[in-house]
């Protein structure tokens, strides 16, 4: 964002300038300090969190990253990638079809469906854990990545439906009308015209679904009991558990885990604010 064009800017007073820069500098330092500590820990030998407050490492080593390669980290990363990708595919399919129905058709129950997608977001995930646990247990889907994918893809649906509906709303009606006159059926119109045109919207919701699944901790930690199946969040939490905390490995793992989603976040950021404050409530 560049500074807005502004005609006759009055020179601000020195006090105001110092105050503004000081506030921003302090806030930025407070934001960066914990991040730098983690980076330092990732490159510094030893299992303890920090022996000094300085964010500069005294000794640099790659042993923690090497340790990740040696450990089962790759296996857990694979589990996380599989869950997140599957969630994205399932979630996008469900959200695209539903958003298309809500955007292009008028039918009884449409308003109810739209409100339901909003209200559902208000159920905090932590309250659905117990009933989902009981249900997944009945379906023999506890301790399975499939169960996790099913649960995750529905938690992302409401946001995706609302975002995609906005995209579909903006497609020119004449185009779809022309296709119909030419004899294209509803499925064909949807797959060959609507979906290709809405690619940017689909990309945004895909990234969002991926991020949601990649970052989810508590359900994964509750539903997965087999250590071999842990996704990265559960693995990271267990690496700094009560009895054997290895902060060096945690820091290295945390960096590897969060850098990709942080990149995604910066891509998504401007859509997130709009989508979330449009009335959608994420829990």
């Amino acid at each position: 964002m560049s500074a807005p064009a502004h005609g006759r800017t009055r020179r601000p007073s020195a006090v105001a300038m110092i105050a503004v820069y000081a506030a921003l500098a302090v806030a930025t330092a407070a934001v960066l300090y914990p991040v730098l500590l983690v980076v330092k820990k990732a490159f510094e030998p030893g299992r303890q969190f920090a022996l000094s407050a300085s964010p500069v490492p005294e000794d640099v080593t790659l042993e923690h990253f090497d340790g990740l390669l040696g450990a089962s980290f790759a296996q857990h990363a694979l589990a996380s990638i599989a869950v997140a990708l599957a969630t994205t595919v399932v979630g996008i399919f469900l959200a695209c079809t539903a958003a298309y129905a809500l955007s292009r058709f008028r039918f009884p129950g449409r308003r109810t469906a739209l409100t339901t997608f909003l209200v559902v977001q208000m159920f905090p995930a932590s309250l659905l854990i117990l009933p989902l646990y009981v249900l997944l247990d009945q379906l023999h889907l506890l301790n399975s990545l499939t169960g996790l994918v099913l649960v995750y893809s529905t938690t992302a649906i409401p946001f995706c439906v609302w975002t995609l509906k906005g995209y579909f709303d903006s497609l020119p009606r004449e185009l779809l009308e022309a296709a119909r006159v030419d004899g294209a059926g509803p499925a064909r119109i949807f797959f060959t015209i609507v979906l290709p045109l809405a690619r940017p919207g689909i990309a945004v919701t895909a990234l969002f679904s991926f991020m949601t699944a990649w970052n989810e901790f508590i359900m994964a930690s509750t539903f997965l009991t087999d250590e071999g199946k842990y996704t990265l969040p559960v693995l990271l939490q267990s690496s700094v558990g009560q009895f054997s905390a290895d902060w060096g490995r945690f820091a290295a793992g945390a960096i590897v885990t969060s850098v990709p989603v942080m990149a995604l976040f910066y891509v998504l950021q401007k859509y997130l604010v709009g989508g979330l404050t449009a009335g959608a409530v994420k829990g």
Binding site: L24, V31, F49, Q237
Partner: peptide, 21 residues
């Protein structure tokens, strides 16, 4: 860009970092 870094980091990682701090 720097000030929204905390929003970009997965919140369970933030929580674990602060637990360590």
């Amino acid at each position: 860009v720097l000030l929204i870094v905390p929003w970009a980091i997965p919140n369970y990682i933030t929580a674990l970092i602060w637990k360590g701090m």
